[in-house]
């Protein structure tokens, strides 16, 4: 008699197991220390020097700029790459062969990447605070923290799409690398989207992080005008677009899974 339970019963455990595995693999591989620990320190120091003296809220600018720089890669690209790594290791095939739908495995990795991204954000915060000799002036610290976490969630929602792309094809890494900087600049990770040519704005609004980052800037930098509709509408927009991403994720994954079972390319890398 099989010991395996039904796929429905094992979904939450699969997500938990995937999160646990992501932590174990992170700890086991020293190369991840660079993007997760050393890079945020460097970004924090560089950002502090770049923004130093740029008005009363320069510390907030420095933290947001460096924080996003260190978090977006960890959360968004880390989520996609986790599946790419499964392809490379040849573990995608046995994972898909398990009864739990692969989406729940991806969710576990994404949770870890959000945590790791936040860890990078905290390091940036600490570096900038230590360099400045004190914390930044935040008009609404609680809202700042909530939106900071929410930005991570929106980055992760795009990460799910990248994860699906990695299941779909071994060439997803190529697409991800090509789009890396376009996405980074286009969603406002580096500087507000409103500074970019107007025609790029509607495209940028298709991505949840654009909305969430705009909201975060609203609540942390007094006088910031952004898209001009206030952080509340930014939040509504971010929730709506993230919801759409979440809704299509399940469909995309089941279709992608069917596609790879048709093409038989699960073991290619």
């Amino acid at each position: 008699m099989t010991l395996a339970t039904s796929p429905d019963a094992s979904r939450a455990r699969a997500t938990g197991a995937s999160l646990r595995l992501a932590i174990l693999l992170f700890v086991a591989d020293p190369q991840w220390l660079v993007p997760s620990t050393i890079a945020p320190i460097v970004f924090g120091l560089v950002s502090f020097e770049l923004f130093r003296g740029e008005g009363p809220y320069f510390l907030t600018y420095a933290i947001l700029g460096a924080g996003m720089m260190s978090m977006w890669g960890q959360t968004l690209y880390g989520s996609g790459w986790a599946t790419g790594q499964d392809r490379q290791l040849g573990t995608l095939e046995p994972t898909i062969q398990a009864p739990t739908p692969y989406l729940y495995v991806v969710l576990g990795r994404i949770i870890w990447n959000v945590i790791a991204g936040l860890f990078g954000g905290v390091i940036v915060y600490l570096v900038v605070v230590i360099a400045a000799g004190g914390p930044p002036r935040l008009p609404n610290p609680l809202l700042f923290v909530v939106l900071f976490v929410f930005v991570m969630v929106t980055l992760a929602s795009v990460g799910v799409v990248f994860a699906a792309a990695f299941v779909y094809s071994r060439y997803a890494g190529f697409i991800q690398n090509v789009g890396e900087f376009a996405f980074y600049i286009g969603t406002g990770c580096m500087f507000p989207v409103i500074l970019l040519p107007f025609w790029t704005n509607p495209i940028a609004l298709l991505f949840p992080p654009t909305w969430a980052l705009d909201a975060l800037r609203y609540v942390s930098i007094p006088g910031y005008s952004g898209f001009g509709w206030g952080w509340e509408w930014d939040l509504v927009g971010a929730l709506a677009v993230t919801g759409v991403y979440a809704a299509i994720a399940g469909t995309v994954f089941s279709r992608v899974e069917r596609h790879v079972l048709e093409t038989g390319n699960l073991s290619d890398y």
């Binding site: 339970t5 094992s10 455990r13 699969a14 938990g16 197991a17 995937s18 646990r20 398990a98 009864p99």
Partner: peptide, 11 residues
Amino acid sequence: LRYFADLYGIP
């Protein structure tokens, strides 16, 4: 093995 045991929902 623990990872795959969890994916298979072994109690």
